[in-house]
């Protein structure tokens, strides 16, 4: 505790005012006290991390394997599988389709999810809690149930195999993720700031753009990334919605092991793992840069 005392002394007003807005990020971080962690807990934690990550990382060395079948440890080193991937239009089209659907899903789900989160934030009481729970149903409902329901509905509306169909279906399962992350960000937003904005001449819409959005941007960005990834690696809905001319990459990967035995899937898997990881790492990296400013 000793290093904390002088900090507190330097900032008496911040401590004295209970109604004051939070102290600067950096300072607050320093106040947080963490009890020492015993070595065995660290070791156990490390094991859990390895258990979760290792299977995913296996695909990367495999993708450079010279062997004709899947085997580990990989034999030799070659770019052949990547060459296959980037020269075969079936793979490339599926990658492009996945990107297109994921980007559109991210845009739509983020818009809808953010709007819902803000509305539920301003709506107090039991009704808001009930609606929030209902909106989480797509996450807990079994994927196959959702997929069959969507398939039957979309057959009638002629939406199967269309970009619109994919985007709408993926948005339905991505919105809850946006809702959760934006709701979290709104928890740290002081509603009195919106009254201040109104008193200074902002219409509710302007106040959203100039005050609410900048302050919850991190939650919106996180939600958008989740929505992108939910769509990008979604396979059950995509299997039902696929058409001969429009397939997403997870479906093509599924085909490549069930219909044909194509080892290119190792390269495709690696590309997906790397892409998803990079996108996931975006917010913490951006945040780090923001703090240095």
């Amino acid at each position: 505790m000793t290093p904390i005392a002088p900090e507190t002394a330097q900032n008496p007003t911040l401590e004295a005012a209970p109604g004051s807005p939070p102290a600067p990020k950096a300072a607050r971080r320093r106040y947080r006290h963490v009890d020492p962690i015993p070595w065995w807990l660290k070791a156990f934690g490390g094991l859990v991390v390895v258990f979760f990550i290792l299977p995913t990382l296996f695909v990367i060395p495999m993708s450079f394997s010279d062997a004709q079948t899947f085997e580990f440890p990989p034999r030799g080193f070659t770019w052949r599988l990547y060459e296959n991937f980037f020269t075969n239009p079936v793979w490339l089209d599926s990658l492009r389709n996945s990107f297109l659907v994921a980007v559109l899903t991210a845009v739509l789900a983020t818009t809808v999810g953010t709007a819902a989160a803000v509305a539920l934030w301003r709506l107090p009481g039991r009704a808001a809690r009930l609606v929030r729970t209902l909106l989480m149903v797509p996450i807990v409902a079994p994927a196959i149930v959702v997929a069959v329901a969507v398939y039957i509905a979309f057959l009638g509306w002629r939406l199967t195999g269309t970009v619109t169909g994919y985007v709408l279906a993926h948005t339905a399962i991505a919105v809850p993720y946006v809702l959760v992350s934006v709701t979290g960000a709104l928890g740290g937003l002081d509603p009195r700031l919106l009254r201040a904005a109104a008193s200074l001449g902002s219409s509710p819409g302007r106040a959203f753009v100039r005050v609410t959005m900048p302050l919850i941007s991190r939650g919106i960005l996180t939600g958008a990334i989740f929505a992108f990834i939910v769509s990008f690696d979604e396979v059950v809905l995509a299997l039902f919605l696929r058409s001969p001319v429009f397939q997403t990459m997870p479906v093509q990967m599924y085909n490549s092991v069930t219909v044909e035995i194509d080892p290119t899937i190792s390269a495709a898997s690696s590309i997906m793992v790397v892409a998803v990881t990079v996108i996931f790492l975006l917010p913490p990296l951006l945040r780090g840069r923001g703090r240095r400013r």
Binding site: P21, D190, A197, A207, L215
Partner: peptide, 20 residues
């Protein structure tokens, strides 16, 4: 008339400054 068109300044107990 909604608050943003009343042209009144307001001071709040918690200051309500925009932190960003």
């Amino acid at each position: 008339v909604p608050p943003h068109r009343r042209n009144l300044g307001m001071l709040f107990q918690n200051y309500a400054l925009f932190p960003h």
